[in-house]
Design a binder for these strands. Structure first.
Lengths: 182, 182, 182, 182
DNA sequence: TATGAATGAGGGTTCATTCAT
DNA sequence: AATGAATGAACCCTCATTCAT
């Protein structure tokens, strides 16, 4: 791939992340305009709008996976787990795409997106397990329901455009339910 | 209103609830086709697609309000509160429209929908307060964050098409956080 | 025809004259609403929108014919002719239907409308001939071009929403051309 | 602008001029079909039907302005004035769009169309003034009413689909009124 | 007879995708 | 490889006309 092509691809991804983060029903033209390229260029890189959306989701998932991995070496696994959870939900409030990405993580068609979803969930599972081992999260909580909670809290924050203070109190309630002896 | 018109209106509402319950971006044609009427008939009853959507949401909200009110006289307020919560989330899993209704409850333009939203939230607040008085829900949990939890759990269940067992375990975690001394 | 039916017919005609006088592209619903009847009643009386329009034109033409006939007995034929001309153009400025009627007078399909058109033109021709005999209008001006002038002045006044003062000065120019030795 | 785009734009304009010249209520589809392009292409060049109509009017007005300017250097200002007047009215008989353009010249929203309208009226005014200075047109006739006459004669000729001979005799009457000592 | 309801064809407009430069 | 232009299917909505009450 030529250098200018790689550049364009990156700019399209950035633009798409921004545009779809604001409004998932945005048009491909919007993306092209923000990226400063012609619309045909977008379709050259992503033959289908769906593929473009999947690429955005994949990027999001990979970033979340990275963050989870960074935190997984933390000395305080409980703090690491809750910090990750909080960050995801907080960002979801302003980035529709994150909540979409979390949801679609399992249902998406493309191979790359699936792999990214698996990786992200795996990293999140590591955080959870470590926190449980450290006694910071009750051990009878299994991964599927905790992940469902993460999705729910994210989508709830996104959809309702939640007041940050309310969002934090909601997280406090969730964390109370996740902690041992609760 | 004439009998046949009332019939058609009801059929359109039912069809719209079904169609938008599956996909909120469905077309008005889809609704008309499922209802078995011409598209102009839909527009005669609901001059705008927005008004049709709002009517569906309003109906949903009114049903939820009814259910909440029925439960509000229950002898065991704690049980009543959690039962309502569970029912809402369970149904949301198969009916997008419910989650949409919960979210839109405050943001919707139409007067009727707004009133229905207020009524539903008020009835849910009554359930919450009674449960708190009965010692079944911690008293430092205030309405906004509990409602946010309800929305989040509903949207999460909807979006992820959650396995029912997982959904129940997720609710268990949420309830653990809502109960006193948790 | 029953008495109530005759009443309704008259009310529909009045409403149509008003509505189409303002906007020739108005809908049949507008007419029905202003007339205070159901839309089906309009179509019972006038099976086609075209027929309704023709009825309105016919009425207009008949009124113009009446006015021309009233003036045809006037002691001063010249004054009568110019008065009629001025009245028609003045009213056209606020009633689109008049200009339409004049234009359509010859091109309309319905038998009644054709008859009304012939009657109106005939009465106008009488006014013209009398004025010419009285020496108030040049005798080499024949009916077709004088009628064309009437149509033109009417449509011009209508279309341009002419300032009344300008409209009068325009008529002065036209009359200067119509008078003998001019 | 690319060559093919410029070609298509020209073909759309030509088609629109033709179609709207026959019937101002024609559909955008009609224009596209006659132009031999897809309907979306029409909307790409003219985002709104109104803008397309205005473009057609603007073109007409500019052509009239050009013709007026060409004639304004004529050695016989009187002949030039009447020739322009006659040409406009003659063409209007077969091109609705010209009469529409004349009428809309002052009432149109778009900046270009307004400018074209001003330019055309200004050029016509020059012709008039020169003709008056040369003693070919009475000096007490001011621009507004002469312009109103032009509009009226055009619309009259258009609407009535006037026989050319009658049209010419109508113009003779009008010119008689415009000449001095009349 | 009068009415409101129902209808389908059509209108303007948008958008994902393909084509030509 | 990059671009702007072209496309047709689909969407929301309106209206003259027909049907059922």
């Amino acid at each position: 791939m030529r250098a200018d092509a790689r550049d364009n691809r990156a700019r399209i991804m950035t633009a798409a992340d921004d545009v779809f983060g604001r409004s998932p029903s945005a048009s491909t033209d919007d993306v092209a305009r923000l990226a400063g390229v012609g619309i045909a260029t977008v379709f050259r890189h992503f033959p289908t709008k769906t593929e473009l959306l999947e690429a955005v989701l994949t990027l999001r998932l990979e970033r979340l996976r990275e963050r989870a991995r960074e935190l997984s070496g933390d000395a305080e696994p409980g703090k690491a787990f809750f910090e990750f959870f909080t960050q995801v939900v907080s960002e979801s409030a302003s980035k529709l795409a994150i909540a979409e990405a979390l949801t679609a993580a399992g249902a998406v068609a493309g191979a790359e997106a699936q792999e990214a979803g698996r990786g992200m969930r795996s990293a999140f599972n590591d955080l959870l397990t470590a926190a449980q081992r450290a006694g910071a999260v009750r051990t009878d909580a299994e991964f599927p329901e905790v992940y469902a909670l993460l999705i729910g809290a994210s989508r709830g924050a996104t959809a309702a455009k939640l007041d940050p203070a309310v969002r934090d109190r909601m997280l406090t309630l969730i964390y109370a339910g996740l902690k041992p002896y609760a």
